[in-house]
């Protein structure tokens, strides 16, 4: 399952239980982010362990941050799925560190990894 556009791609690899996000996500509001949110929720429903890899993601606007918080809250609180969810980013990319810290504060059960 994948969503590909000129400037970004979201690729779900079910065999390795990874969703890789790459490029620049500057979509307009939650409506345009809905297909990505659906892909993430659907991956989380299928896996016992799921890694969402942001390492190749260059940019995320505030609507994208909003989409990620909706995903985390849905998985950990609303649907309370039986999945060990981990979000991975790069230590040298400051915004990724900030995002992961914010997501973890929002959902203390979330695993994060900065490489």
């Amino acid at each position: 399952m994948e969503i590909k556009a000129d400037k970004y791609s979201i690729v779900y690899d079910p065999d390795n239980a990874i969703v890789r996000c790459s490029g620049a996500l500057l979509l307009n509001g939650s409506k345009e982010y809905e297909p990505i949110l659906q892909l993430l929720n659907s991956a989380a429903r299928q896996q016992s362990d799921l890694l969402v890899d942001f390492c190749d993601l260059k940019f995320l606007n505030s609507s994208g941050i909003n989409m990620m918080t909706r995903f985390i809250i849905n998985v950990l609180d609303v649907e309370a799925l039986e999945v060990n969810l981990k979000i991975k980013g790069q230590k040298k990319i400051a915004w990724q560190g900030k995002l992961l810290k914010n997501l973890q504060r929002l959902a203390p059960g979330l695993n994060t990894q900065l490489d």
């Binding site: 509001g29 939650s30 505030s62 609507s63 941050i65 909003n66 918080t69 909706r70 985390i72 809250i73 849905n74 609303v78 914010n102 504060r105 929002l106």
Partner: peptide, 18 residues
């Protein structure tokens, strides 16, 4: 964090100030 949480729980709109 209040805004992130309320957006995630359904009060999502494009004018939240996030």
């Amino acid at each position: 964090f209040k805004t992130m949480r309320s957006n995630a729980l359904g009060d999502d709109n494009n004018r939240s100030g996030l």
